[in-house]
Each structure stands twice: as C-alpha cells, then as structure tokens.
Design a protein around this nucleic acid. Structure first.
Lengths: 347, 347
DNA sequence: TTGTAAGCGTTATCAA
DNA sequence: TTGATAACGCTTACAA
C-alpha cells in the first residue's frame, strides 16, 4: 500500500508538508496544497492507521464490549451507539463475549465466568488504545465490569455498575411496573395476577415494587398468592397461567412477552381468548407481541433510547474530560405502554 | 500505560529479550524467562497493538462490513463469524453501514447509495490493515462490493458477488422452493397458491423456479394466476390471501414468515384457521413462526451455517494463500423445512 | 543466551 | 512556507 513518503516524492515535497495538508495543521501554499490533494486522490492514499495511532497516542476509537450479540436487546442498542459515535466522528470497535454460546444460561451470576472473558476483552481494547469503553449487558443486574482505578472513561449500559465510579444506563423498571399496574387498574381490574421473572432478578424485583406501589395508591388489594415466579420462558407462562386462572384473577401482568405468549398457549388450548375471557399484558414489546392474536398490550423498552443516551453520555465525558469517573450516576430510561387488544375494560 | 522498555528496565534485560519471551521466538534462559513473565504479570503489561501492527505489517484482524446490523439475518451470521475467527485466533472488526437507518428501503438496488458508504468503510478497513474483508449483506441480490483488483482477500456473504473474483455464500433458494413444493404436493395439495416476494428479487425468482420444477416433477399443474407478488410485508400477505382464497387454492406458500403472518391475519378476521380450512407455509423460520397459532410450517434459513461456512472459507483462504481470488465460487447453504401445524394432509 | 540498532509510517518540534 | 529530524513501541537481523 502506498505511503506518505511515496506521495511526498511524487509531489517533490517533504512528508511533513503532506501531513500538514492532510491535517490542515499549518499554512501550506495553495499551489502545493492542490498538487498534494491531487496526487492523494489519484493514488487513493490512505494514512496508515497504526502509524497514526502510535504517533498521536489517541485513536478516536470507542470500544464496545457486548455480553452477547444475539441477545435480542443488543443489536438495537449497539446500532444506535455506533450511529451516534459515527456522527461524532468516533470509530467503534465491537467485542462480542458470546456468553450464551459459551455457557448457555449459567453465567448470569457467575462472576468467575464473566471475568474470564471480560478481562481479555478489556486488555484487548486497552492494547488497541481505545479512548473509552462501553459495556453493553444482555440483561439488568449488578455487574462488576471495571476496576475502580480504571485508566479510561467507561460506562455500563443496560445493567447496574457495581462500582460507584461508573455511570449506568438502565431502564426504569420500577416505573414500568408502576405504570402497568396503574393502567390495569384504570381498566377496572382489581384482581391482578403477576407472572414475574425469576425471584432474585433485578428486573423482577423493581417491577414488582412499582407494581405494588401503584396498587396501594389505587387502593386495590395486593395478594401475594397472585404473584408467581417464572423463568422468563414461554413454558413457565403456560404453567403459571393455569395456576392464576384458578385463582380467578381478571388480568395477568407478565414480566416479559415470551411468558405472555405462554399464557396465550394455555388460553388457546382451553378455548379462551385474551382480551375477552381474561386480560393479558406483557413486557418488552418484542416483535412477537404484534403477531399474537389478539395483539398483546405490552410495555415497550426503547433500546434505541438506551443506545443513544449512553453514547451521548460517553462522548460528553470524552469531550468534557473524564466526568463519568467523578461519581456514579444511574440514568433511567422510561418504558412506554403499547396498548393493543389483550386488555379489556371491565365493570 | 506501561511499555516494553519499562519492563526491560525492571528486569534488567533488553527489550528484545522481553519480546522474545513474549513471542517465544528464540531460546531464552529459564531464569530470565520466569523473571520477565513475573514482571509482565505483576504490571499487567499489554503490548501496544499499533506498534505491533506497524512493525509486523500483519494484524490478524478480519474486517466485517455489515449492510445493516438490525436486519434480522445479520446478528446470527456475524455472531458465528466472530466465534469462528476467535477460535482461529483472528480478531474481527465490524463496520455497520446502517443502510436502513440512512435510507429506509430505498437502497436495495441503488448502486450510488451503496458505494457512498461502502467506499469509506473499505478505506477504513484498509487503513487499519485488516488481513481480509467479509461483506455481510442484508438480503440476497447481486452486489458490487469490491474492485476486481482488490488488494486483500474478500468474500461476499448472503448475496451474490457481481465480480467473479470473489466467492459468495448464499442460501439455496432454488432448492428451498423445490423442497417446499415437494412437501406440499406430498401432503396431497394440487392447487397451490404462492405469495411471492417482489417480482424482481433474486430470492423470489429462484424459489419460484424451484417451485415450478417440483410441480412439474410431481405432475401437478402450475397456474400463473395462483402466483401473486407481495412486498415481503405483512400487509401484502393479508391482501393477497384474499385473492388466492377466492381462487380456491388449498395451500399457500408464502416466501417469508411475515407475509404468512399477514395471511393468518386474514384468516383470523374471517373465522378461518390455518391447517384446517387452508394450509399455509412460510419461509425464514423467524421467531414469530413458532408463536403463530397454529404454529407455522416454514423453511428455516440457517444463518449460523452461513456464518460458519463463510468464516471457514475466509480463514482457509488466508492460510492457503489468496485462493478466493482465483475464481468465483458460489457456496449454497441448504434450508430445512420445519414441520409445524399449518399444513394439513388432504385427500 | 543476550544486547544493539534499524525500521515500520506517521506527526510534532525545531530550524531554515 | 517548507524541510530535516526525532519520537511513538515494537520486532528482528545481526553482532557479541
């Protein structure tokens, strides 16, 4: 590949002149400037990125570490991050840790497994001399990503940073649960079942706490028997639907769309229909929710908002100095209820 | 960040010794080796990637250019490519062109739009000195990715390379259409409607040609009136379902699951049921197909196979010399019919 | 077995 | 306005 030196020879000037033309760092006579630009264009010269990086000690690259690219939340978040960075003239480099591929579902709370792939990923990015690192989690939990004395700005996306030194961007689960309960109550429901996620999960706990708060405000009774814990999978929705229907609830709030689909399975098998015989609400607004019959009312998580917000913060930190390191900040992105046909107004 | 020079000082040896220990290039006495390794470990020293790359003129990085990361096919393909490359000790760097974000649906056949983002993407990868480039398309068509005299090995994934110099990995659409027709005929259907994709689309044409071939072999009449062209969207499935049902077909082959979902919409509105009143088959095996009721029989595209296959080829080309440049090869990855509940045996 | 020194392609500093 | 030169951190040929 052609180098600056060759361009310099072809133009009959020194390499510093080429460099100066290309970077506009100092005055170069219009004549030589044009000559240089012509040759650069003709030859298709591209500065060697490594040489530049080495000399400047600054790369304008932001590293992204994704827990798992095939987690459904990851592509839209990362897509927006990349878009924003590109607009701000930063490059991005993505490392996909592929946690699911490596350990299926057994890594969520296994610190050792996480660190065994996270450390090399961080090392790699540091050796590439990225300006900052964005950690994109696959789902919310407290996660120990970076050491307190981490040498570059960093941010935790879609999970809570264990260390208070790093800003986190998460969804507002508490408000999400609260809003959904408010909505169901406003539709006349007073016996509301919940198919929650796993009991120790952060999403689960926060959504449930918001849910209870709204019931209290609405003076609607809360019955712990109406709260069942699933495993986020379709099958558990099916199973718990049966239990809750036996309790005579008029509505079921499922903490994800997949379990809601499991409820639909149960209804289908038993000749019942969501939005008629019982009301169903989901969470996530995954693609499937618009394809269920009747279409599922659910709480949309705006992954693009999460992506944009975190990229903005990251770049602001980079421009303003290392502000993110000053202290923890937890940014909460709100969810939004998408009203479809699975919740019926009663009474 | 700590450099090799500092490590050398701390160990009381020269930098070349450090380098040799780290790369195992020549004999170093066990004593110094240990001493060096200890210090490296203690300090967390990481070689500077830029300096290495510059010196070695070899990066072991494979560049991936994705047309669109949020196209549903892209994440699983890319995930597998990354996995395979990682196993083979190659790094990957991903550039997402975000075509959809930039131009919605208007870029498919717009060479100018494509080139306006592809050229900078390629330049960037070349200036990073990647060893090879993999182009990951969002959907099949003939695409003009690289100039014939491209300087590094390259491969086109999920689309057909215009230039015969580059290998393409695509799905076997012809066989896909053939298999589906065979299957429907084997279930007793003789009046089979088709909701095809857009008429000029490569997927459409190849699937249709396979479809006709199978009908011919099965001595089942082919009626052009039973073939309708949609736009791959749900709405067109809905609309064309009505037209085909009026033609009294007993089965409808939809060229993607989304249009099949549109057919379901129509059936639902009219009190009909797939797999009972009429048989429906889809294509893609998207997530939704397992959530439709009754679950949709469809032709699965194995994106992971595509990813693995292309990564294998790429790395083989890199190891064996630049074989990919020798001549065009079109690798076809077969689809696989997933039998669910939407196709009924008749007669 | 180890050290010295050149060189990879840029940019920044200094001198002209 | 321009050019020579050093320096970035590493690997490798050659010398010791």
């Amino acid at each position: 590949m052609i180098t600056q030196k060759e361009i310099a020879q072809m133009c009959g000037v020194s390499t510093s002149t080429i460099s100066n033309v290309l970077n506009g760092k100092r005055k170069v006579s219009e004549a030589t400037r044009q000559r240089v630009l012509d040759v650069v264009k003709k030859t298709g010269y591209q500065p060697n990125y490594f040489a530049q990086g080495m000399r400047k000690q600054k790369t304008n690259i932001i590293g992204i570490i994704a827990e798992d690219l095939i987690q459904f939340s990851s592509p839209p978040i990362i897509e927006r991050i990349m878009a924003y960075c590109e607009d701000m003239h930063y490059r991005t480099i993505l490392i996909n840790m592929r946690m699911y591929d490596k350990w299926l579902n057994t890594w969520y709370n296994d610190e050792k497994k996480l660190q065994s792939v996270l450390k090399p990923a961080i090392s790699e990015l540091l050796s590439i001399k990225v300006d900052a690192i964005m950690y994109v989690a696959g789902h919310a939990r407290v996660v120990n990503c970076f050491p307190d004395d981490f040498e570059i700005p960093a941010i935790v996306v879609y999970a809570y940073s264990k260390s208070p030194k790093f800003t986190s961007i998460v969804i507002d689960d508490e408000k999400g649960g609260y809003d959904m309960a408010k909505y169901l109550v406003s539709m006349g429901h007073e016996k509301i079942g919940v198919i929650a996620g796993t009991a120790d999960n952060l999403h689960t706990r926060k959504r449930l706490s918001g849910f209870r708060k709204a019931l209290k405000e609405g003076k609607v009774p809360y019955n712990p028997k109406w709260v069942r814990y699933g495993d986020w999978k379709r099958g558990s929705g099916h199973q718990l639907a049966e239990e809750l229907i036996r309790e005579d609830v008029t509505a079921i709030f499922c903490m994800n769309d997949e379990m809601a689909a499991g409820v639909y399975d149960y209804l289908y098998e038993n000749g019942m229909k969501a939005g008629e015989d019982i009301s169903i609400a989901g969470y996530d607004n995954m693609e499937i929710s618009g394809y269920l019959k009747p279409a599922l009312t659910t709480n949309e998580i705006s992954f693009s908002q999460i992506g944009i917000k975190s990229a903005e913060l990251m770049i602001k930190a980079l421009t303003d100095g290392y502000e993110t390191k000053k202290g923890k900040e937890i940014i909460k992105v709100p969810c939004r209820i998408i009203e479809r046909d699975s919740v019926k107004r009663i009474k």
